[in-house]
Structure formats: structure tokens, C-alpha cells
């Protein structure tokens, strides 16, 4: 292997790209958990839904950007239905019941995808704007992957600002810290929960639409991404934005460089990492509260 500097730069970009995709997914899951104390195993299915809706939207409109716009909205709408019908009632039902209800949802979504889009894997084209490759620092890299990295950073920045600078952010932080106390202070936590849940779903849908041109769109893509996402969230610390960032980067880099340096161990590496973190820091690297 000719391991020159450009090789490692490209691999670092690969790791960043995967990290950002994981971040888009895990941030919604983690904030929903932190605020609503709700474990949503169907989060991966919402991501898959985003990809399927994206494929249909882009085929219908003939443009990638239709998928980019429609998928988050459509998934958020489905999220609203889920919230009203299920999530609201399940909030105080304990983690096991939540795990089970959302496990049931995974099954339901799986067959809905089969009924709606068939069993044959689908694909989606990249946007013309970001197709091809970009040359910089002596390397050539797919432009669309740079777009994913950029998008992840933009979402990250936006969420940080939202959380630290706006009233909604303050309420969310208060809710994560102590939901009962926030409610006592006259804050309509219920409405904030609802908004946050929809936002998390929209981000999952966005991740699906963004991932679709790189990956294939299959009925089991949601279950396949679920485990890495959960690992990110648990390693980072449930409910913590910083944790989601740290966890995504950690997993993205471990998976990518594991594949490069120790391919035989790559399949086990992520789980081993999770086990180690849970043993040493049972609440994750950046627990949302003390």
C-alpha cells in the first residue's frame, strides 16, 4: 500500500462524510431522548422513509432538489402522526415498552416500504450541481461527499445556535436538565416536545434523502443504520448534542480507519468500542446531565 499524505487526507474525508451522515441521524434521536425520555428504534425507519420518498420525489420532479425539500417535510408529517397516535402516550411507559412499540413500528414500516416501493433496491441520481469531483490539496474527491460534509457542518452550526442563542433552545436545555421544573415555571413543555420531535424526524428524513444518491435504497436500510446510530447516541451520552457530535466522529473514524487498517476486526470494532465506553462511563462520554 502506497500510503502517502493524499491517501490519508482522502480517508479522513471519508470518515468525516460518514460521521456527518451519522450525525444527522443521531442528533434527532438523542435530543428526542434527552427531552422526551423516549427511545425511538423506528428512527432508522424514518431515515429509510426519507430515502424512499426522496427517490419518488426526485423521479417525479426530475430533480434531486425535490427530494431534498420533500423528504424532510414528508417524514416530519409522518412524525406528527406517530407523535399524536403513539409517542405521546408512551412517554412515561418505561424504556422497555418504548423499545417494543418502536420495534413493532420497524416491522410495520418494513412492509409498508415493500408494499409501496417493491422488493427491488432503488437508486437516486446526484444533483447536477454537486456531481463530479473536486480537486484541492493535491487530491481529487467526489463533490457530493463534500456537500454531505458541508451540510452536516451547517446543520451542526444551526443546531448549536438554536440551542445556545434562542428561547426555544433555552427551553429545550431546561427541559433536558429538568423537565418537571421547566413545566413548573410555566413553560409549555408539551409544545416544545412536539416541535423537537418533528425536527428530529425531519432531520432523519433529510439524512435519508442525502444518503440516497451515495447508497442504495432498500427496505432494510433503516434497520441496518439503526444500530450504528444507537451506538453513536449511547457512546456520546443520551440527550447531549456534544455527545452526538463526539459519538458520530468517533464511530465514523473508527469504521473508516478500521476498514483501512484492520479490516478483519472492523465488524467487531464498533461494538467493542461501545462495550468499553459503557463499562468505563456508563452514561456515555458527554452525559446530558450530571
Amino acid at each position: 500500500m502506497t500510503a502517502d499524505a493524499s491517501f490519508w487526507i482522502v480517508q479522513t474525508l471519508n470518515a468525516l462524510q460518514l460521521s456527518m451522515l451519522l450525525f444527522l441521524l443521531s442528533v434527532g434521536l438523542t435530543v428526542i431522548f434527552g427531552l422526551l425520555h423516549f427511545v425511538n428504534l423506528a428512527h432508522g425507519s424514518l431515515y429509510a422513509l426519507g430515502a424512499f420518498v426522496g427517490v419518488s420525489a426526485s423521479a417525479f420532479a426530475g430533480s434531486y432538489w425535490a427530494a431534498f425539500a420533500v423528504a424532510p417535510v414528508a417524514v416530519a408529517l409522518v412524525g406528527i402522526v406517530l407523535y399524536v397516535a403513539l409517542i405521546r402516550r408512551m412517554r412515561n411507559a418505561g424504556p422497555m415498552n418504548q423499545v417494543l412499540v418502536t420495534f413493532g413500528l420497524i416491522f410495520v414500516f418494513l412492509d409498508l416500504f415493500r408494499l409501496g416501493w417493491g422488493d427491488i433496491p432503488l437508486g437516486m441520481a446526484e444533483p447536477d450541481l454537486f456531481s463530479g469531483r473536486t480537486e484541492f490539496l493535491g487530491i481529487v474527491y467526489p463533490t457530493y461527499r463534500l456537500f454531505i460534509i458541508g451540510l452536516g457542518l451547517v446543520v451542526l452550526a444551526a443546531l448549536s445556535l438554536l440551542l445556545s442563542r434562542t428561547q426555544l433552545g433555552a427551553i429545550v436545555r431546561a427541559g433536558v436538565d429538568n423537565g418537571d421544573m421547566a413545566a413548573c415555571l410555566g413553560i409549555n413543555v408539551e409544545r416544545v416536545f412536539f416541535v423537537v420531535f418533528c425536527l428530529g424526524c425531519a432531520l432523519a428524513g433529510l439524512a435519508g434523502a442525502v444518503a440516497a444518491p451515495v447508497l442504495s435504497v432498500t427496505t432494510d436500510m433503516g434497520t441496518a443504520i439503526l444500530i450504528p446510530t444507537l451506538v453513536v447516541v449511547v457512546i456520546g451520552g443520551l440527550g447531549s448534542l456534544r455527545g452526538a457530535i463526539a459519538g458520530s466522529l468517533l464511530i465514523g473514524f473508527v469504521q473508516t480507519f478500521g476498514a483501512v487498517l484492520a479490516p478483519q476486526a472492523a465488524a467487531v470494532a464498533v461494538y467493542a468500542l461501545l462495550a468499553v465506553v459503557l463499562i468505563l462511563r456508563p452514561a456515555g462520554l458527554f452525559p446530558a446531565r450530571g
Binding site: F7, V10, Q17, L215, A224, I225, T256, F257, V260
Partner: peptide, 8 residues
């Protein structure tokens, strides 16, 4: 899902 590292 990501073959980038292997392709590189």
C-alpha cells in the same frame, strides 16, 4: 454502506 475507504 460506505465503500469509500476500500476504493481509496
Amino acid at each position: 454502506k460506505d465503500f469509500g475507504p476500500y476504493l481509496t
